[in-house]
Amino acid sequence: MLYTPPIARLVEELSKLPGVGQKTAQRLAFHLLKIPGEEARSLADAIIEARERVTFCSRCFNFAQGELCDYCMDSRRDPTLVCVVERPQDIVAVERTGEFRGLYHVLGGAISPIDGIGPEELKIRELLERVRKDGVREIIVATNPRVEGEATAIYLADLLKPLGVRATRIASGLPVGGDLEYADEVTLGRALKGRLDL
């Protein structure tokens, strides 16, 4: 036996985390044993509290602490404008821009047939329900600009158009600070298609 049983268990549990291998788990375990007991207990409490108190918002499927998430409860936000994202983390990225004051809808992923994920596995039915009930006038599809995200956007647009709601897609093109010479054909092509008047 390399470690005493409590350490072995800690290493084993830590190595289950994404991106954490055996070696990193071992390093983290020894770090946790070295820090003051108070700090270690605080980490354990934080994990337990997050697991017990965080749920999914019943309207947009973002993480929430109750029935609705903070964005859905904020009366200053425009409820007729909905930004559709793949995962709750994407909301944080959009919020950081400070450019969006509408509500969100988390799909729970993107359509990826090769992984067995079809439209039924995502919160698409719930989105359509929201559009019908909440008087939404524009849906901004902010899925990742990968093949799967693009296919999901096309699929959503086909469903949303007959409902009379405006469906838009976030623009894609060159990153700020990038160099035209190194841009690939697909990205540069998109940037040209989505060009703006000066």
Binding site: S112, I114, V147, E150, A151, I154, D184, E185, G189
Partner: peptide, 24 residues
Amino acid sequence: EIVRSHAPLRADFAKFLFGEAMLE
């Protein structure tokens, strides 16, 4: 370096779906 991006397959859901089945 791209030889052919097959971009139209990303712009049509049916083509994307059947294309993915071919790749798999």
